[in-house]
Design a protein around this nucleic acid. Sequence first.
DNA 1: TTGAAAGCGGTACCAG
DNA 2: CTGGTACCGCTTTCAA
Lengths: 344, 344
Amino acid sequence: MVQIRKESVPPSPAPSAAPTSADVARLAGVSRATVSYVLNNTSAVRISEATRRRVHDAAEELGYVPHAAARSLRAGHSRMVLMPAPNVPMGPLYSQFINELQWALGRLDYTVVQYGSIGLRGDEAARAWAELRPVAVLVPGGGLGPQGVHVLKRSGARAVVTLGPERVDGAHALLMDHHRVGHSAGAHLLARGRRRVGVVVPREPGLEFFSRPRLEGVRHAARDTDATVAELPLAYTEEDAARLAARWRSLGLDAVFAYNDEYAMLLMRALQDEGIAVPDDTAVVGADDLTLGRLLRPRLSTVHIDLPSGRDLAELVDRVVRDPAGAPEAHEVFGARIVHRESS
Amino acid sequence: MVQIRKESVPPSPAPSAAPTSADVARLAGVSRATVSYVLNNTSAVRISEATRRRVHDAAEELGYVPHAAARSLRAGHSRMVLMPAPNVPMGPLYSQFINELQWALGRLDYTVVQYGSIGLRGDEAARAWAELRPVAVLVPGGGLGPQGVHVLKRSGARAVVTLGPERVDGAHALLMDHHRVGHSAGAHLLARGRRRVGVVVPREPGLEFFSRPRLEGVRHAARDTDATVAELPLAYTEEDAARLAARWRSLGLDAVFAYNDEYAMLLMRALQDEGIAVPDDTAVVGADDLTLGRLLRPRLSTVHIDLPSGRDLAELVDRVVRDPAGAPEAHEVFGARIVHRESS
DNA sequence: TTGAAAGCGGTACCAG
DNA sequence: CTGGTACCGCTTTCAA
């Protein structure tokens, strides 16, 4: 069968669609291959300086932008690192961490993409992520199961790293030990003689993966002592805090671990407005060591979490991508320690 | 030329690469076309129930996940809405807005992707985004020029929407009138009899697009009055705030607009520690109307910004995507109004 | 030094 | 109702 191929009879240039490398080739009077060589600085092939210029000029003139999908389809891989976008407002601590990480991965020539998967949960989300064929997936918080990890690996992800409270089969896990966060706070309060400890649990959905283990950590610290631990649901609104403060005396608590610094601030203010002295009547401890904790009076005691630096995490990702079998399922645990100020 | 085509002699299945639709077809004993029809529920074609099941089962068994790049390459378009990921920690106000927007766009069947472009600026970034061939691009903050808009449109973006202080040629602009934010604060302070107004300008890079117009807004409010306006660079650290507070009396200011509520809190605390009374000696006004402002004593006066709701913005994007010529360069301006509490 | 062509994984037209 | 196949834009041998 004789067939007229596009290479032999190029069609006339499309009116105003996105210019392709073929358009550049036509304008420069060379072949598509040459265009590719020039624009990618392919070292395995030598192109005359004159041709290079013609190609560059043509690309410039047309405003040529390569098509990432076509490129990675052909290449069989991409340099995309995918992270699910958090579906719950994360504090400044986390935001800054993400920025650092993006910067560090950018330096290693990866492209970081935060994918908004809202409404999908667990393995549904994993399938959606897999469609993009990322070279690595970085999942903060819980919610990804071994199934999901499998789907991602099968679809070409060379590194799947979770950053959360629990390890997941098949993934590299960076354990943020929220249990330990709670434990540090609990142990601190007990050591200072408190015996009836409240633990704030945010009512906002999506935070359970952090708040549950924090609560359990406090419970664990109180085990085998005469101390008691009470769970205190609290929404992040002034009204709910005021409601809780209003019945505070009836609760008979002498200390509270407030989930994090923001909830701690909210609750501490409500307690003070209710005439409850901090720390004399009730000790308050937060977590995350935000700047705002130092701005309160009394200054807020908090649990400082040693997050991995963005650079370190970027290097881990890179290492795993380059040699996925290298250190399978290595997991590091990041520390948490109490920072004692004035509120406890 | 006689040629053995892949269709006639399928190779044996790859060992453990990602399964393709061809693999599914082989296992189900049908053609790739049929697989495509079944998995996409193509209505223009009727497939027997038996075949459907075979295809679905095969896909399930292999853990088949379609390849987004291949699909959109063929289709010539995608449903990806791209937003640059902020390279500076944004407050909870913005985070929540993003979440709402993602949710709303998700409901309209778009895929939202936050692209981490750090180190690239202006039109460089636009080129990087264009490589992904998004159907729409949503750019908060300034930094995108008409050049960039052109590149994006040329590469197939049907909607380019900016959300920032100034309008950009060729893009739909949602103007957040930071000038007006500053103006509200300034007018309020002057109305309350203040005459020497300081304006905090964050030292942190990346915030100029917001802080500049806010400063100008205050200046504008003071024009044609006997009031003076002083620019106060401030880093978001306790130390820098303390330094500024230490020389406060020498500045002779009786009011300050602190850029936003977080900087306001930082500065107010430093002033109080220095023995400067708020609002008696110095009035303080923030912006963004964060919850934390109500938790301070005195309660923080602030400028409330009326952000568009995520649903509204999603609908705008959708409308423009469906009819790019519909309402070219429409731009809405979102309001800002003072919320007077106790600090001013 | 440059060009022709194969093919990455899907989709959709056209035949049968 | 199902199969064959051209093609989206790009990279990369292989030949000339």
